[in-house]
Design a protein around this nucleic acid. Structure first.
Ligand SMILES: [Mn+2]
Ligand SMILES: [Mn+2]
Ligand SMILES: [Mn+2]
Ligand SMILES: [Mn+2]
Lengths: 216, 216
DNA sequence: TTGTATTTTTAGACAAGTCTAAAAAAATTA
DNA sequence: TAATTTTTTTAGACTTGTCTAAAAATACAA
């Protein structure tokens, strides 16, 4: 249906659209680690296929069709990640690169059966919602730890940084999805956050608190 | 490591090498439904990478490295087919095309974990042997039904034709892997073969008998 | 062994996707 | 508003993998 490159562009545009609805050439280039000139070439092709709205110099947005395709790729990505962690026992920091390849396997029948096989999971290993076979999913209503008040209590439910380094750090600290924590104190000097988890205190940096999301 | 096209060429050459050890340009072109000139171009690239032995006009054979790569792709293909049938409950005639895509997912760690997850199966849904993580596998010692004597008894263990049409026909007749059959008679007029299975008689054509393999 | 048919390779072109360098448009600053 | 900076697009080139048409090598047959 679509080439691998097209799928990756649509996914990147979708991701960037969540922040600002009109996406710039440079943003896409950064996201895909490619050059702006390459992006312009591809934008013309995607516009020809009616997958994006594009006028020169004006940035782009996905059409309804384009968004459907993008959400479907994200569905595949997250279902494969879930499979890799739950069935093949990979760690949550090991699965992203593999899923980047697997998300391009084209059969929807395959993905729907995989979904069924795993019991229709609604969250991937990083807490991100998995769209169902119609593309519907609940948007996360999560807050970065750095944004909540002292004495707030919540459940770790997602991450903003998906890098191995960050995920491995969290794993080591025991700060994994589902854990219940309380924000005890924010040290004014450097915004270090003091947490309580399992009756033990834990300090995390401002950076970590920015990238760790909780449900209240 | 290798491109998708390279992997497909290596697999095709491997497959053709099982029949005759030196493989011709035209044979590869037919196998991959491409043109001889495209094959020549690719052969040069594969030879440069020391994956095949190639001298102009002389046909090709795989180097040890090339064979390892090819066997690994076949391992992946057959493990994914097994997964699709055993875990996702696809039928044996539905899985080949999906496996053609999945075999190119590059992680060996993934494939080894998948192998373990499924209990290290040794045969794919079509009876073909699955190489282990070192590339070792037992070669099939199977005979086409058309080549065995009357009154021979054996177990259906493989197919020579992997087409949907053939597999669906076998399924319908109940002629699936593992079934025990006896060759009762060969009708001299048109070489129709009369089988007995579960105490019932069944007639299959010469063509079918040629493509259905049994272990004695 | 000489001529014909077949196979294989070469030559040249094309599409997809990428790049660098330069030009054009837009945004920012003075 | 005019000058400067930044962003985006265009121009032209390169790589991979494919194709058609023509040339070269090999195989087969008389
Ligand atoms: Mn991911
Ligand atoms: Mn994820
Ligand atoms: Mn197959
Ligand atoms: Mn098979």
């Amino acid at each position: 249906m679509h080439t691998l490159a097209e799928e990756n562009y649509l996914k990147a545009i979708y991701k960037l659209s969540l922040i600002a609805e009109n996406v710039s050439t440079n943003q896409i280039a950064a996201e895909l680690a490619t050059k702006a000139s390459s992006v312009t070439d591809m934008l013309r092709k995607l516009a020809d296929k009616l997958l994006i709205n594009y006028t020169r110099y004006q940035g782009v947005s996905l059409t309804q069709t384009g968004e459907k395709v993008a959400v479907n790729i994200i569905r595949r990505h997250r279902l494969w990640e879930y499979f890799l962690v739950e069935k093949l026992h990979f760690k949550w920091d090991e699965v992203h690169e593999m899923a980047e390849e697997m998300e391009h396997i084209s059969s929807n029948e395959l993905i729907d059966r995989l979904d069924e096989f795993m019991g229709f999971p609604t969250r991937d290993p990083h807490g991100d919602p998995i769209p169902d076979c119609n593309g519907n999913f609940k948007t996360n209503d999560l807050k970065a730890i750095s944004t909540v008040d002292v004495n707030t209590c919540g459940i770790i439910s997602g991450v903003r940084d998906h890098s191995s380094a960050f995920l491995q750090y969290l794993e080591k600290q025991g700060l994994t999805i589902g854990k219940k924590i309380t924000i005890k104190e924010i040290i004014t000097y450097d915004n270090t956050v003091v947490l309580q988890m399992n009756n033990k205190d834990l300090q995390i940096s401002r950076d970590v608190a920015n990238n760790l999301l909780i449900a209240l």
